[in-house]
Amino acid sequence: MKKILVALFVATLLMACEPVIDNIFDVYTIKAGEHYTSIRHTEFLQTTILQFDARFGESAIYTFADPGFQDSKNKLMGFSDCNSLHHENSARFAWQWYNNKIEIYAYCYHNGDRVEEFLGVVEPGETARYQIELTAKAYVFRFKGKEVTIDRGANCSTGTYLMLWPYFGGQLPAPHDISIYIRRF
């Protein structure tokens, strides 16, 4: 009985910690020398639209000693397509600090082939809305009024669609701690 009461108490405490929905911006921090973020759990896409707000801090500004790596795409967020690995079929937003701006790209894998398309730019500190719609045959990326459609490669519709979280690189890891603020819808 005591164990049950303790478990209930802990569960109540955990539920009480849930923040107000409107203020939920999860902070994804990629530590210096790492590729992956601090928050990285297994989660499944559950609807045909992935939508979120994201904001980059000043930490998104970085310069590599070798400028050849500066246009490596860092991944923001997206999902792997139906029962596919992310290097086979997936759709994500990508970003890079380039020409003193944060450039945003649609970044997909189509049957193992990478497809990238420029979407626009954001400033550090600016919150923008990002949306990927999954249709029967394509991914539709929407960002700041621009819409880009990229063909899907996966040939199934019912299955597992794993969420993909922020990732730094490219080949090189984060040169310093980088924080990205994301609010999902």
């Binding site: 009985m1 164990k3 049950i4 478990a7 209930l8 499944f44 896409l45 559950q46 609807t47 045909t48 519709s157 019912t158 299955g159 597992t160 669609y161």
Partner: peptide, 24 residues
């Protein structure tokens, strides 16, 4: 996980399809 005559505390797992398409 823990049980007595009046209370049972359990772990649960649900697996299924969301919107007829997404395995969750």
């Amino acid at each position: 996980i823990v049980r007595n005559q009046k209370l049972i505390f359990s772990g649960t797992l649900r697996a299924g399809l969301a919107n007829n398409q997404f395995m969750v």
